[in-house]
Design a protein around this nucleic acid. Structure first.
Lengths: 132, 132
DNA sequence: AACGTTATGTAATAATATAACATTTATAAG
DNA sequence: CTTATAAATGTTATATTATTACATAACGTT
């Protein structure tokens, strides 16, 4: 069961927009899209994004400076994320693969470091783009 | 054997700086440090960085917008990278773990996508910071 | 030398993100 | 219900990261 974080007004507006878009969105594109709803400044967007990332409703695609709604209903915090990114059409999808996530969550090396979080981005050509 | 890309003047200046620093460096910090050598504009730095990334001499730490010299002499292109990042002191090191890289290079899911590249960033507290 | 490619120089600007400060709203403890 | 506290908002300015556009120079081949 996912913990309910009742979102604030701005958080809800911004989450709904990203979620409905179905793909990654950039901060200033979000800003442009929510100006009619009264959100006028970058900081208002970034604050909502920070919170949404913190509670796991969205994830940041670091290589693209973009944000995508979490596809995984069991995901409560953005602490173990994996994405596949098409380098041609820039389609992004979240990878839910329990073997992969187990492997990475349990990964340790000889550095003596205990990892509490990871982010993995795979790149390639998606089916559509490959066949072009 | 690593292929020799003879670096150009700017590429060499910038690679040497990053390499000697021993850690990740940000573009504008690089710029500041090489101004005495005649590199005056951001674009000169970014162009050299792009090339160095392309040929695998450095990697970009996406979550930090920073660049680090490749620690792995066999690394020719930046197509399979993994890093450990301390969230307290921001120390970064490249992970060379053949099991991990094999696992990720061969990873495939049911999306029909063939991955040609990946980047993985692990986060946590390093030994030093953990014991504080 | 002529050609194509790679690298450089320079100015301007675009895109991404945060600092600082004031105010309001939500939550929970008494 | 009221007070205290934390969380969220509003607003302006600014910092940081990265690219566009255009001109010139150096390098490697044939």
């Amino acid at each position: 069961m996912q913990k309910e974080h009742s979102l604030s007004k701005n958080q809800k507006i911004i989450f709904d927009l990203i979620d409905k878009s179905g793909g990654p969105m950039k901060a200033y594109s979000i800003l442009f899209n929510v100006q009619k709803k009264g959100i006028k400044a970058p900081l208002q967007v970034y604050r909502a994004l920070d919170k949404l990332v913190e509670i796991g409703k969205i994830h940041k695609i670091e290589s693209r400076n973009a944000f995508i709604a979490c596809q995984n209903s069991s995901c409560q915090v953005s602490k173990a994320t994996a994405f596949s990114i098409c380098e041609s059409c820039e389609n992004v999808s979240e990878i839910s693969n329990s073997k992969l996530s187990k492997y990475l969550s349990n990964f340790s090396d000889d550095s003596g470091m205990k990892y509490s979080k990871y982010n993995l981005e795979f790149f390639g050509l998606c089916k559509k783009c490959k066949s072009k």
